[in-house]
Amino acid sequence: MAITVDRKPLTFWEKLYLPAIIGGIKVTTKHAWNTLIKGKVVTMEYPEQKWTVPDHYRGAPYLVKDQEGHTKCVSCQLCEFVCPPKAIRITPPGDTGAKADRTNAEKMPAEFEINMLRCIYCGFCQEVCPEEAIFLQKDYSLVGTSRAEMIYNKEKLLSLGGEVGGIQKWKNKLEEAKAQENFPVKL
């Protein structure tokens, strides 16, 4: 249904365009005053100023070490299989490769590569990891001068990832189990 908007004819005062002109001058001077004198600017000057990333932000995935500085990854290759864009490539140690550098683990990857050009920050690798060895962290601006440079290897991922204290998975499982016990919905 067509709605006819009632257009009032302009009054004499409005026809002079003076109210519009005065209004325009007011608005523009107010904003210019706010930016120039009071320094209220909405622009964030990016490389110098950075916004605070929220806690749940999913940035680039990095490998983490445990509290003793050992590799947590056990080269199970679950993340490699789950990765939708196939950004992760793990080379297992094989028969001859180095064994795990921590107790309670059989092996660690000989090489662990994430192609950051392919990664879509979905977080599946973090979700699937049984050892809590890979986490999506807060980095969002990864820069490189070549494609080869954007494939991050194991050392780089480990050094960028930092340390995470202990394995939390059993604690989380416990909490999940408890949460299931007292189901919030009353029947």
């Binding site: 930016t35 120039l36 209220k40 000057e45």
Partner: peptide
């Protein structure tokens, strides 16, 4: 620059 100031921006810098 002036457009930037009027629109609460910084302008080329």
């Amino acid at each position: 620059k002036i457009s930037a100031w009027i629109q609460d921006r910084v302008g080329p810098n």
